[in-house]
């Protein structure tokens, strides 16, 4: 039997954080159906694990973590993506930095809608973890410490994954720009 305070706390979280949880799951899976399943599964798991929650903050943190895990599980289950680069793959920072700037073309630089669409497409380059870190830090604007808490990582690991994500996305966007100019 699940206690009423937990149900109430989860209902509040659904109202306040539901869109953000979905955003995280969507960024990781890049599939709206998988993302909604991940969020639903996360709430079901929270409801089934009534022990150990003391207050909304802990519950919120746990929900983010389980949503991320459910999203990754869903990705693996469906196996839709070609093998992704590993999270700990060596970073060729100088090589990535050689890509042309995505903002080199003034006309393109001013087209925010186009750049956002290209950014979404470029996210396929990242690992699921990098997408999650990137979403929480860059899109949601959470501080590094909060991203670390929500994903169960150390702050150094968050910065490392964020850096990889940023350099890869810049390189991908820049390469795309260079191809179009040819």
């Amino acid at each position: 039997m699940v206690d009423a305070p937990l149900r109430d706390a989860l209902a509040h979280l659904l109202r306040d954080e539901g869109d953000r949880l979905f955003g995280l799951a969507l960024r990781v899976t890049r599939d709206p159906d998988l993302a909604r399943d991940a969020v639903q599964s996360a709430f079901a798991a929270a409801l089934a694990s009534a022990d150990g929650f003391r207050g909304d903050a802990a519950l919120s943190t746990w929900l983010y973590r389980i949503t991320y895990n459910k999203a990754v599980d869903a990705l693996r289950a469906r196996a839709r993506e070609v093998p992704l680069p590993e999270d700990d793959e060596p970073l060729d920072a100088p090589g990535l930095a050689h890509a042309p700037s995505p903002w080199a073309d003034p006309e393109r630089a001013l087209d925010g809608r186009r750049l956002r669409a290209e950014l979404e497409a470029a996210l396929i380059e990242l690992t699921p973890l990098q997408r999650a870190v990137f979403d929480l830090r860059e899109v949601e604007g959470l501080p590094t410490s909060e991203v670390a808490t929500r994903l169960g990582l150390g702050e150094g690991a968050v910065r490392a994954q964020l850096h990889r994500a940023r350099l890869r996305l810049r390189a991908r966007l820049g390469s795309r720009s260079a191809k179009e100019e040819r």
Partner: peptide, 11 residues
């Protein structure tokens, strides 16, 4: 650029 992305909504 990321800060200007429209946040998705839970259906």
């Amino acid at each position: 650029l990321c800060r200007t992305c429209d946040p998705p909504r839970l259906p």
